Simulated scan of single mutants.
Amino acid sequence: MQTMMVQTKIDFKRAYWRNPRFVIFSLLMPIAFYLLFTKVMKQGVMNAAFNRQYMVSMATYSLVLSNTFTLSTLLYNDARDGLVSLIDLSPTSHRTYYGAKLLNLGLINALTIGVIFIVAGISNQIHLVWSSWLLTAGWLWFASIPLCLIGISISFLTDENQIQLVSSLLAFPLAI
């Protein structure tokens, strides 16, 4: 368990904390789209139902991007750079490595859902009972599991261009 926590901490810093693309595309872009369509480009009076629905849509969009683009690219880069081979020489097992990746991704997914919900709640005064907030966030987080499996599957492609192409071909229709 100690090894898993150390691997998770190192992996989090390396993959997400030092990765500005993740922050821009998986977090800031959905927030910017939410604010753009609910605050800037609103025509007439937007009803609260649209603001709630769009909040969930942007959280889903963020999950699609982080699970298809970010995870597949991270796993491919680790294999390409020899980190996966290095694990064979270390006391860390492949199970611990992939477990740490999945633990980090679950944490990141929960964090992005929370941040988008907080921004939406504050910017548009979305009022829901706590059970509705938690149930919606929980279902979104649970729905990210198949997306994570898609991202892992994409990472087994042999070329970074193929990964970007397949990620794009899957992510954008899923987002729509």
Rank of each mutant, 00 (worst) to 15 (best):
48 A>D: 09
51 N>S: 13
41 M>A: 15
105 L>D: 00
48 A>T: 15
67 N>A: 00
88 D>N: 13
172 F>D: 02
56 V>C: 07
85 S>I: 11
175 A>C: 03
39 K>A: 12
79 A>I: 02
112 T>V: 09
74 L>C: 02
175 A>D: 00
154 I>W: 15
116 I>S: 06
74 L>E: 11
86 L>I: 11
37 F>A: 12
101 K>L: 05
161 N>Q: 06
112 T>W: 05
71 L>N: 04
26 S>Q: 01
88 D>E: 14
85 S>P: 01
50 F>R: 12
170 L>A: 14
96 T>A: 03
120 A>F: 05
91 P>G: 12
56 V>T: 00
174 L>R: 05
103 L>E: 03
147 L>G: 04
136 T>R: 00
18 R>A: 01
168 S>A: 09
146 P>V: 06
87 I>P: 01
8 T>L: 04
22 F>L: 01
5 M>L: 11
167 S>Q: 12
10 I>V: 15
3 T>D: 01
168 S>H: 14
38 T>V: 13
22 F>Y: 13
129 V>D: 09
172 F>A: 07
34 Y>E: 09
4 M>Y: 07
111 L>P: 03
88 D>G: 00
113 I>S: 08
7 Q>F: 01
168 S>M: 02
138 G>L: 10
140 L>M: 09
67 N>D: 10
169 L>A: 11
22 F>M: 01
147 L>F: 07
118 I>H: 00
147 L>T: 04
39 K>C: 11
104 N>R: 00
71 L>T: 04
54 Y>T: 06
57 S>V: 14
170 L>G: 06
50 F>H: 12
163 I>T: 11
165 L>A: 12
140 L>K: 06
81 D>P: 07
131 S>P: 04
158 T>R: 13
86 L>M: 13
140 L>H: 02
164 Q>D: 13
155 S>V: 14
14 R>V: 11
86 L>Q: 03
141 W>M: 09
73 T>H: 04
122 I>M: 07
154 I>Q: 14
77 N>T: 15
161 N>M: 14
116 I>Y: 05
167 S>A: 14
45 V>M: 08
88 D>Y: 08
57 S>G: 12
62 S>W: 10
133 W>T: 04
175 A>Y: 08
31 I>Q: 04
64 V>T: 07
22 F>C: 03
176 I>N: 10
67 N>V: 10
25 F>C: 08
107 L>W: 12
45 V>K: 11
87 I>Y: 02
117 F>T: 02
9 K>R: 15
150 I>C: 12
107 L>C: 06
61 Y>T: 12
33 F>A: 13
61 Y>D: 03
5 M>S: 08
163 I>L: 06
62 S>D: 06
1 M>R: 08
52 R>K: 11
47 N>I: 14
172 F>G: 03
121 G>K: 04
125 Q>V: 13
9 K>L: 15
142 F>L: 14
40 V>N: 08
70 T>S: 00
35 L>T: 03
157 L>P: 10
